[in-house]
Design a binder for these strands. Structure first.
Lengths: 282, 282
DNA sequence: TTGCTCCTCACGTCACGTGAGGTGGC
DNA sequence: TTGCTCCTCACGTCACGTGAGGTGGC
């Protein structure tokens, strides 16, 4: 029979750990002196402790271990807990591997460019949102920008400020230079019944119609600010990131303007979030 | 410019997180209303937040992130921090993989035997200890047991109780049935100068000599209790464990008796810890 | 006035490590 | 008597989540 100091030396654990396990009822000493409060452990308890340590080493919590050491537990439940833990481990292993790839791509980026870069790609999910927009094919990039400007103006003048969430452009085509098939409109914080008309001299005008922007689970996003024509830089960055981190594009790109653009005449700098639905590459 | 609620929706993070980052100075809102305490964030701050989230995703702590976002940091230090984190990740990846192997071997064990088993193997390290012992070749297993008994008696009668730590047997041969080359003695909690003599009729007697049991970094250990002749069961268990978990034997085995054995005549049950120095298998 | 959003505490988490301050045993 | 070992609080950890209780703005 050992005092806590000897026992902790034999077992190579701290006395604090033994007192803690006592306090939570995980490993009670064989005997406690009522006078002094001294804890006494038997040689056989080293086996109990070793079982605890072995299970802890598998990554189980002390609660789970206590459950597994309970006399009334049956084997099927033990097997179930281990199988669950195994699944968690496999999950976390693949996440760690992804993290490692991310960090490696950051490191090569630093080697090549000498800094952390201008933009950061972040994975998010997006909920479904009511969307008031208009879809059309725009001959040139400039035509599309003109309509963005017109929609921004229409939304600002014809909708109450509280109703608008964000000006958003949804691509229905790949990234091309002409004949762009786009949906341009605003997401709403709440549904509205007002009809909103867009007037524009040199681009398709008409009426915005209400639909829904679908929810998306896995979105690679990136925020950029600058003039409209610098968009391709950010797209390039996103492409590099996806390749380095094992994703592929899996849906239509969206651009969400965080500032309502073109509010100050002559200044066309804007901040927007580019969103790409992605899936794991094969 | 956004209130915390809108900003948190755009960024897909909780308001609490934003308040927390404000409180630790990691991401201060662009403006705080002195009257109401309301926090206001700019569109550009989404980029700062995204950088933070991207770095957090790499597994860096918020302290490290704050350091990396500091203006006064140079690129070499950033690279150093990432390289360090990369090394940590690789380390933890291999540990998780080991955990996964462990848990798989547990699961197959449950399939085969229907329970968690009798013994648990635990990895430890051992410090160097003063050792008072005698080395000899014993024709049979029984001869060795007789000397263990004699050494136990000699230690109990000729040494003060406080000086003895554990009765220990060190193997200098593989696990064989005859001509066992063993060192039998006691580890000491403090050095002693007394000469200790072993008297035994049917086994090598003589004088115990003082030496040092070397420290060992990686020890696979297992505690068993039972009669001496059941040792091979535990050895078999250890062998299976090592194979399943990717270790090989890397040194001489030791057995440490936790109870001084043979104290009660006729009862030869004992609790001992088997210790195998191991290394990762190739 | 009624919701809605925002605010500031403050506790809880998980498995102990690390003192602080005090007492029994040789 | 002097060390040594043991004891019981109690705070700190890390990055927030989750109420509690109260206030500004439309």
């Amino acid at each position: 029979v050992f005092r806590i100091g000897e026992f902790s030396q034999i077992a190579r654990v701290s006395g604090r750990l033994l007192r803690y396990y006592d306090s939570i009822g995980l490993l009670r000493p064989q005997h406690i002196d009522q006078q002094t409060g001294y804890r006494y452990y038997s040689a056989g308890q080293l086996q109990q402790l070793n079982r605890i340590l072995a299970l802890k080493d598998l990554g189980l919590t002390l609660d789970q271990i206590a459950r597994m050491l309970d006399d009334k537990i049956d084997v099927a439940e033990i097997r179930g807990m281990l199988a669950l833990k195994k699944a968690e481990l496999e999950q976390s292993l693949s996440e760690e591997a992804a993290r490692l790839r991310h960090i490696e791509s950051r490191l090569t980026q630093i080697e090549e460019r000498g800094n952390l870069g201008d933009y950061d790609v972040v994975m998010k999910s997006a909920p479904a949102l009511p969307f008031l927009g208009i879809r059309a094919v725009y001959p040139t990039f400039g035509d599309a920008v003109a309509t963005v400007r017109a929609v921004a103006t229409a939304a600002r003048t014809q909708l109450s400020a509280g109703a608008i969430a964000n000006l958003t452009v949804v691509a229905h085509c790949d990234y091309v230079d002409e004949d762009l098939d786009l949906e341009i409109g605003v997401t709403l914080s709440r549904a509205v019944n007002r009809k909103v008309r867009v007037a524009a001299s040199d681009s398709p005008g008409g009426e915005l119609t209400l639909s829904e922007l679908p929810a998306i689970e896995r979105l690679a996003t990136l925020v950029r600010s600058g003039p409209p024509e610098e968009g391709h830089l950010a797209f390039g960055k996103l492409g590099i990131w996806m390749e380095a981190n094992g994703y592929r594009i899996d849906g239509r790109c969206r651009e969400m303007f965080l500032d309502l653009p073109f509010q100050i005449p002559g200044q066309d700098t804007m901040t927007l979030e580019i969103q790409f639905p992605v899936a794991k590459a094969a």
